[in-house]
């Protein structure tokens, strides 16, 4: 009965010829594309924070509020460390493309170290600043944004350590097989770029107002 309404004499039935394709069942590796798409999304979350920050700042009569000192020296050193680590990690990528596992391990280890220094530096900064998360609206923004970024640095660090761990297995990475290495690198660059924007908003922009 249900079928009664279905047309039976359509002029064309789907024409599907069969053709066996090479590599038909292999699942293509699209992780890099996935990561890039994901980072687009992530950057918009930071974008939301940045927008909120700028709106709060725009409405405030004094920014940062009275008595809230923004330290500059330590974060500047931290920035230099983080930005240069982006170049270091790239050396690791270059190395693996030349099949140089030792080079990969060396540069990734240096990057991990730099990342760790950055995190320690940030923790030190938190501990020595005279204000906490809930002190005032600037402090709210400051801790939330740097904290969120710090979390991302931490995740990036874990990715790098993961690559180092895996690279111990012989032949795990090679010049034609290093997607994991690339993904860690891409993520690290992303974390770096976000930091540059954050640094500009939180540290530099606060010097002139």
């Amino acid at each position: 009965m249900t079928d009664a309404t279905a047309p039976t004499g359509a002029a064309i039935a789907p024409q599907v010829t069969t053709e066996v394709q090479a590599n038909d069942h292999a699942h293509p590796d699209l992780r890099v594309w996935g990561l890039l798409t994901f980072l687009v999304s992530e950057s918009l979350m930071f974008g939301g924070f940045f927008a909120a920050y700028l709106m709060v700042r725009g409405a405030a009569s004094q920014w940062p509020p009275e008595g809230t000192e923004v330290e500059l020296l330590l974060p500047a050193i931290n920035t230099v460390i983080l930005v240069s680590s982006s170049f270091v990690i790239h050396l690791g990528d270059v190395a693996i493309k030349k099949n140089d596992i030792g080079g990969l391990r060396k540069w990734y280890a240096v990057t991990a170290l730099m990342g760790a220094v950055f995190l320690v530096g940030q923790a030190y900064e938190y501990a020595t600043l005279g204000y906490g998360l809930s002190s005032n609206i600037f402090a709210n923004c400051f801790y939330l944004m740097t904290g969120f970024h710090g979390l991302h640095v931490f995740i990036g660090l874990l990715l790098i350590l993961g690559v180092l761990w895996r690279s111990r297995r012989a032949g795990h990475y090679s010049d034609h097989k290093h997607t994991g290495v690339e993904m860690a690198e891409i993520y690290w660059h992303f974390v770096d770029i976000i930091w540059i924007v954050l640094f500009a908003l939180l540290y530099i922009l606060t010097q002139f107002s």
Binding site: T5, P7, T8, G9, A10, A11, I12
Partner: peptide
């Protein structure tokens, strides 16, 4: 509307 018997497109 579809009319019974007319199975064309």
């Amino acid at each position: 509307r579809y009319r019974p018997g007319d199975e064309g497109d």
